[in-house]
């Protein structure tokens, strides 16, 4: 019983995440176009509630953009063309996945650079730790030096 209640509560908690802001009057009759519109909407950032995509945002501008995306698709745009159309007006900022271009190289490449850097430093430290391990046996020259010292000691001893 308790388990069932817990499960139901969990489902209720998950529910809000599954609900999109798309209103019935926005939905297109053509299910294929509608699915494409939903896909595009998930890649577009709402400029009011930033960090929310327009598919799940209730802001007025987000609704306008959803309608605009659908309009572009009906006009025969490809997904990319519809995205470009909105990007031309709101800039790279509306794309939740930033484009790969000179001004974003640092953004895209920094994680890889940091990873390589970390790996490099680790290898360096580990290899040095290995070579620095103290030698168990003395070298020949050290051996002879020790012998000489000992001999001197014996001699100075009365």
């Amino acid at each position: 019983m308790i388990r069932k209640t817990l499960f139901a509560t969990l489902i209720l908690f998950i529910l809000p995440f599954a609900v999109a802001a798309v209103e019935p009057d926005e939905i297109l009759d053509d299910p294929v176009l509608e699915a494409r519109a939903r896909d595009i909407s998930k890649d577009l950032r709402c400029v009011v509630c930033q960090n929310e995509n327009i598919d799940s945002s209730n802001a007025g501008v987000a609704r306008d953009l959803r309608l605009l995306v659908r309009e572009r698709l009906i006009a025969g745009d490809t997904n990319q063309q519809a995205l470009d159309f909105i990007q031309a007006r709101y800039g790279d900022f509306v794309l939740l996945k930033p484009p790969f271009k000179p001004s974003t190289y640092a953004l895209w490449l920094a994680p890889g650079v940091f990873l390589l850097f970390g790996i490099g430093v680790s290898i360096l430290i580990l290899s040095r730790a290995r070579t620095r391990r103290p030698n168990e046996a003395l070298s020949d020259s050290e051996e002879s030096a020790v012998a000489e010292l000992l001999a001197q000691e014996n001699r100075s001893d009365p």
Binding site: V61, D64, G91
Partner: peptide, 8 residues
């Protein structure tokens, strides 16, 4: 408004 890129 969209053509002008306004957010509010």
């Amino acid at each position: 408004g969209i053509e002008w890129g306004i957010s509010g």
